[in-house]
Computed example of a mutant assay.
Amino acid sequence: MTDVTDQDATDTGADRIVTVPNALSILRLLGVPLFLYLLLGPHADVWALLVLVASGVTDWADGKLARLLDQSSRLGALLDPFVDRLSIVATLIGLVARGILPWWIAAVLIGRELVLAPTLVVYRRRGLPPPQVLYLGKGATFLLMCALPLLLLDLAVPATSVVAHPLGWAALIWGTTLYVWTALLYLLQCYRTARAVPPHPSAPGHGRATG
């Protein structure tokens, strides 16, 4: 996941849309349905693995290029994490459908995103940007983005199973644990923000009954 934040983009005043990092994010976005088709349609596991690895490489590259080429943008700050999460969710669904992962692991990881999504409303109503990404959260994402290709490699190339299987499961277990832990940290941060900062009068939804 790229570490270009909304605040970074705002500070540079970058409203650009056509940039190399954004093009890479769009390419990754287009790779999501292609990956699912290859994995669930013809069961072309090696090709699906190559698409997944290419997605991980471009994910790393777009953040580096954004800084190297000075092409940070507001669109990139929103698009990149969205594609990251969509890619992880799609990969989880595909691996569960193929029987590679138990459904409850996918439920935990996807449920984490559903639980955290409403916290953005808390910040928006207070006129605040989303919280900075925790480095621990980046570590969790990195582990998951290593675990999922390794587990697919275990299926696609059985000769690698002796290495890919234990490494994939170790990365998955640690990544899932950190993913859940960082979710608790984000929820605590949101709770503290809600108590310390009153809703902004001009913010959307201010003054409405919440039920």
Rank of each mutant, 00 (worst) to 15 (best):
G76R: 12
L78A: 14
L78R: 15
L78W: 15
L79F: 11
L79V: 00
P81C: 10
P81V: 13
F82P: 02
F82C: 15
V83W: 04
V83T: 02
L86P: 11
S87D: 10
V89E: 07
V89R: 05
V89T: 15
V89M: 12
A90T: 03
A90K: 09
T91A: 14
T91N: 10
I93Q: 12
G94A: 00
L95K: 03
V96G: 03
R98Q: 15
R98D: 15
G99S: 05
G99A: 01
G99P: 06
I100R: 14
L101S: 14
L101C: 13
L101F: 12
P102F: 04
I105V: 14
I105L: 14
A107R: 09
A107V: 10
V108W: 02
V108R: 05
V108Q: 08
L109A: 07
L109D: 04
I110E: 03
R112T: 06
R112L: 02
R112H: 00
E113M: 11
L116P: 07
A117M: 15
P118L: 10
V121Q: 14
V122M: 11
Y123M: 06
Y123P: 10
R126T: 08
R126D: 08
G127E: 03
G127D: 08
L128C: 04
L128T: 09
Q132D: 14
Q132M: 04
Q132V: 08
V133A: 12
L134F: 13
G137P: 03
K138I: 02
K138C: 07
G139K: 02
A140V: 04
T141D: 06
T141A: 14
L143A: 04
L143E: 01
L144C: 02
M145S: 12
A147S: 10
L148C: 06
L148E: 09
P149V: 11
L150Y: 10
L150D: 07
L151N: 02
L153M: 13
D154P: 10
D154F: 11
D154I: 00
L155A: 15
A156P: 07
V157D: 07
V157N: 01
V157M: 09
P158M: 03
A159M: 09
A159T: 09
A159L: 08
S161K: 08
V162K: 08
V162Q: 11
V162W: 14
V163Y: 09
A164F: 06
H165T: 00
P166M: 01
P166G: 02
P166A: 03
L167D: 01
A170S: 10
L172T: 07
I173K: 05
G175Y: 03
T176M: 05
T176F: 02
T177H: 00
T177W: 02
L178N: 05
L178A: 05
L178W: 01
Y179I: 06
V180G: 10
A183T: 05
A183W: 00
A183Q: 01
A183D: 01
L184H: 07
L184C: 02
L185V: 12
L185E: 08
Y186A: 04
Y186C: 02
L187C: 06
Q189M: 12
Q189N: 14
Q189S: 10
R192K: 13
A194C: 08
A194F: 13
R195W: 11
P198K: 06
P198W: 03
P199K: 01
H200P: 11
S202M: 09
A203F: 08
